[in-house]
Amino acid sequence: MAKPIVDHELCIGCEICAELCPEVFEIRDEKSWVIGSDKCSTCNCEEAVESCPVGAIELEDE
Rank of each mutant, 00 (worst) to 15 (best):
K3N: 07
I35L: 03
C21V: 03
P22S: 05
C11P: 04
S41V: 11
R28Q: 15
A2T: 09
E60K: 15
C45D: 04
C40F: 05
I5W: 10
I27T: 05
E46S: 11
I5P: 00
T42M: 13
K31R: 15
D7T: 02
I16D: 03
A2D: 10
C21H: 02
P22H: 05
I16K: 08
V54Y: 10
E9T: 14
V34W: 00
I12E: 14
A2C: 10
E60R: 14
N44E: 15
L20Y: 12
V24W: 00
G55V: 09
I16T: 14
C17H: 06
E9D: 15
I57Q: 07
A2I: 06
E46L: 14
S51W: 08
G13L: 00
K31W: 02
E62N: 07
D29G: 13
C45Y: 01
W33S: 05
S32Y: 06
I57G: 03
H8I: 09
I12W: 07
K3D: 04
E58M: 10
C11E: 07
S37V: 00
L10G: 03
K39M: 14
D29Y: 14
K39E: 15
P4N: 10
W33N: 13
E15T: 15
S41Y: 12
I27H: 03
E15F: 11
V49W: 02
T42K: 12
V54W: 10
C11L: 05
D7C: 02
P22D: 09
P4I: 00
V24K: 01
E50R: 13
E26K: 09
K39S: 11
P53Q: 08
I12P: 01
H8N: 14
S41I: 13
C43Y: 11
I57D: 03
C40Q: 05
K31T: 09
C43A: 12
T42V: 02
P4R: 00
S32G: 14
K39D: 10
D61M: 11
V54I: 12
E60F: 08
D7I: 01
I16A: 12
G55A: 11
T42G: 04
S41F: 15
G36M: 05
D29V: 04
A2V: 09
N44K: 12
E9Q: 13
P22Y: 04
A48M: 06
H8D: 13
A48G: 02
I57R: 00
L59I: 03
C11S: 07
L59F: 09
S37W: 08
P53Y: 02
D61R: 10
M1W: 04
V34M: 05
S37K: 11
D61I: 02
S51Y: 09
D29P: 03
C21M: 07
E47D: 14
I27R: 06
I12K: 13
M1N: 07
